[in-house]
């Protein structure tokens, strides 16, 4: 189990670096698909079976297909401006490292204090569904309104405007 974790973690990190580092936007998108799939595997390893499937359906199956579709439709391949200077990239890397350094004490102290729960939660479809339709029914309905608004907004934004 631990070996599997490290293997998936490796794939996850390499693909995340690929998203950030590749010059070609389509390669970035494909790396992100790999990344999302390995996150789905992580979910399955954490017993969140429902979320693993939803991750594949929503992220890999809908969002990333949409992104790829737009990339192909606009047919932009390489960034047409000169690459950023080494200085800027170095600074960004330093900023990232500083951010990580900030997280380290958080990881060490805060979560080590919480004991691992004895209950092994099973995120099966039945359990998650039950919770979603009882305790969280109001946010669930609100989410449907949000999606409705997003659909209308997307149509309004992407529609060709006819100038009067």
């Amino acid at each position: 189990m631990t070996a599997l974790f490290f293997l998936v973690a490796l794939v996850l990190l390499i693909s995340a670096v690929g998203v950030v580092a590749s010059r070609n936007a389509i390669h970035s998108a494909l790396f992100l698909v790999g990344n999302l799939m390995s996150v789905a595997v992580m979910f399955a390893m954490l017993n969140a079976h429902f979320l693993a499937v939803v991750q594949v359906i929503v992220y890999a199956g809908a969002i990333m297909v949409l992104v790829l579709f737009v990339l192909m439709l606009l047919n932009i391949k390489l960034e047409n401006q000169p690459a950023l200077g080494k200085l800027v990239i170095g600074l960004a890397g330093l900023g990232g490292l500083a951010f990580l350094w900030m997280m380290v004490p958080l990881l060490q102290r805060s979560f080590a204090a919480i004991p691992q729960s004895a209950v092994d939660v099973q995120g099966s479809v039945r359990e998650v569904g039950k919770l979603l339709y009882t305790q969280y029914v109001f946010p669930f309905e609100a989410a449907s309104l949000l999606i409705m608004a997003a659909v209308v907004g997307a149509v309004m934004l992407a529609k060709r405007r006819y100038r009067a």
């Binding site: 969140a48 429902f50 979320l51 939803v54 991750q55 929503v58 992220y59 809908a62 969002i63 949409l66 992104v67 737009v70 939660v121 995120g123 998650v128 919770l131 979603l132 969280y136 946010p139 989410a143 949000l146 999606i147 608004a149 997003a150 659909v151 907004g153 997307a154 149509v155 309004m156 934004l157 992407a158």
Partner: peptide, 21 residues
């Protein structure tokens, strides 16, 4: 896990509007 579900909903909405923009 429920929170993750809602994050996914928001991400889907964000994808639709963001790509339209």
């Amino acid at each position: 896990q429920i929170a993750v579900f809602f994050v996914m909903v928001v991400a889907a909405a964000e994808a639709a509007v963001g790509l339209a923009i």
